[in-house]
Design a protein around this nucleic acid. Structure first.
Lengths: 142, 142
DNA sequence: GAAAGTCGCTTTCCAATGGAAACTTGATGG
DNA sequence: CCATCAAGTTTCCATTGGAAAGCGACTTTC
């Protein structure tokens, strides 16, 4: 049997990690794991997602066997997305990640504040300071 | 105490999930959790990452308090990145995700094959054919 | 019977992000 | 004084992402 390694560029597990270690994918899959949901309901629940990205994300999840898609001949047509057994196992892991975020958000915010304060301190009105400030801004650290 | 919700567009936890639910971040953090690593070592170990993205990723991880950075006055200069206690708690969750990927990759590959095969099939005028055609078209797999 | 609304998308357009590769900095050995 | 190495940064172009509009099929409202 093959040896899988996410650190290898061409390993299938790398591709899979690319699919699942994604903000929108995580939010959408977790939401669907709570029960079947329709397209526009997802759009409203997952604040900030665009229909384009939602559509792409659902396609990928469907192809990977993590969710199913069912069409109901109502008017207007209704489409329900539901979690599969395989998807359920993944959503449990994603839930752990999301819970970590909610548990540790304050520690992270504190770290960011500390970091930004230190960056501001170590440069006065010097030329080097101005240069660094520009660097930091370029690095998107504000 | 504020109520955090990753589904809310402007919640700090959403920003945090955005940082951690990312392919490169996950790979880099997990690698560093195995012991202090230098920049170029990371670059070699995490196959496919560019220096630009590695640099940005390390900055973000540092600002979020998940890794530390130590400079050694060797020649040429050496820089070591190490995991922090906070980062260690996260890397354990990320490891769970990566393990899920390695455990379930074959099921996902099978699902993809099944899905793509259905898309490639001739599909006559059967009810099943029509149903599949709808699924495939919706998934944009032509 | 025309206009407006619903759902589930797709398309278009522009801005932001990502990757490949060249360049920089600073100290040293040849 | 040229080449080298670590640790990045910068440049350039391609891919991706988001906002908004369009679409098809059908009902409800005026």
């Amino acid at each position: 049997m093959p040896v899988y390694d996410v650190y290898a560029k061409n390993c299938p597990t790398r591709m899979l990690l690319d699919h699942i270690a994604d903000k929108w994918t995580a939010l959408v899959l977790w939401k669907i794991s709570g029960g079947p949901v329709r397209f526009n309901q997802l759009r409203r629940d997952v604040e900030g997602i665009s229909t384009k990205v939602l559509s792409q994300t659902l396609k990928r999840l469907g192809r990977d066997g993590l969710i199913s898609r069912e069409v109901f001949a109502t008017v207007p047509v209704t489409v329900e997305y539901a979690i599969t057994p395989l998807g359920q196992t993944l959503s449990e892991k994603i839930e752990i990640l999301a819970e970590w975020a909610e548990t540790n958000i304050e520690a992270v915010l504190a770290a960011q504040e500390h970091f930004d304060k230190a960056a501001g301190d170590e440069m006065g009105a010097t030329a080097a300071g101005a240069a660094n400030r520009r660097l930091i801004q370029a690095a998107g650290m504000r």
